[in-house]
Design a protein around this nucleic acid. Structure first.
Length: 288
DNA sequence: CACTTGACCTGTCCGC
DNA sequence: TGCGGACAGGTCAAGT
């Protein structure tokens, strides 16, 4: 499930692959995945050149020479995979997680002038891409209320702690997952950072000590930066812009490790539900 | 207003 | 082997 590190990995990969390319055709099989009208597509997407690719929280924005942008949310199973005409042809040896494209989960296909293509795949159809004027992005309700970027250099411990104060009666895990508190945290990095900070996910925010907030602030940034270094986490579906897996799961300390030993104390890791999400902890390191 | 639950989807896995 | 149901989780709308 793409969270901040996965979306950032896709952003970096796509930046290398499609900036400067001109879109010549666009096809979609599903209006929910790509709701724009044919007229909008013809006027603002076809013939447009890719100028820049940005990320905010878990959203990607592919900025175009028409002053429009493709805003994209991958949700749980979305993939953005680029294929050159020859580099990843059928049967070509590579370590891609997926095969020939398009396949049955392909929702949108963009073709560039040189014949290469960008595929938006999404098994569960929760994800979407939407063409809109660049200067209207800031007006989206989500953009109005989303919290700060946790990896920005100027994001301080004081800001981090303050963001939680209005969520005092919520569990710390629910607050971490709340995009209006901090941007980009999902289930994987919530569990991983709480283990690192030795905080039980059900602890109410107003019981968290300042030293624990400091540990969580440090761990969250550590874990997300490591995940970006490793190209993100591939649990089931996630792949980067070349269709390849991320390797953070090889370094995960609790996520999807129920039944295995905690690397810090040897206690068996357990799984249960918090805030409606599958949650993994070391019951010895993380206590209520 | 603060917070929780259900809906959106489809593929996979488990138990009978 | 087939089948029903639980489960996976990001976000928004609806409900408490």
């Amino acid at each position: 499930m793409p969270e901040l590190p996965e979306v950032e990995t896709v952003r970096r990969g796509l930046s290398e692959l499609i900036i400067g390319h001109t879109i010549v055709t666009a096809q979609s099989d599903n209006p929910k995945s790509f709701p724009n009208s044919p007229q909008q597509v013809k006027s603002f997407l076809i013939g447009a050149k890719v100028i820049d690719i940005r990320r905010r929280a878990k959203l990607l924005m592919i900025d175009l020479s028409t002053n429009y942008t493709l805003v994209i949310h991958l949700k749980m199973t979305g993939q953005l995979v680029y294929r050159g005409e020859t580099a990843f042809g059928a049967g070509h040896p590579n370590d891609s997680l997926i095969g020939e494209l398009p396949d049955r989960s392909t929702r949108v296909t963009l073709e560039f002038k040189d014949g290469s293509k960008l595929f938006f795949n999404d098994q569960r159809k929760f994800g979407w891409m939407r063409l809109m004027p660049i200067d209207e992005v800031a007006d989206l309700p989500f953009m109005q209320k989303v919290g700060p970027e946790p990896l920005e250099a100027d994001f301080t411990l004081a800001q981090f702690t303050t963001r939680f104060t209005r969520r005092g009666r919520m569990s710390i895990k629910a607050a971490l997952l709340d995009q209006t508190v901090i941007a980009g945290v999902g289930n994987i990095y919530a569990d991983e950072s709480l283990w690192g900070a030795k905080i039980h996910p059900k602890r109410l925010v107003n019981t968290i000590m300042s030293a624990e907030f400091e540990a969580l602030y440090i761990e969250l940034r550590l874990v997300m930066n490591l995940a970006i270094d490793k190209g993100g986490s591939t649990d089931k579906n996630y792949v980067n812009a070349e269709g390849k897996r991320g390797s953070y799961m090889d370094f995960a300390r609790v996520f999807r490790r129920e039944g295995l030993e905690c690397s810090r104390c040897g206690t068996t890791i357990i799984k249960f539900k918090v805030a409606g999400r599958g949650t993994h902890i070391c019951p010895n390191c993380q206590r209520l």
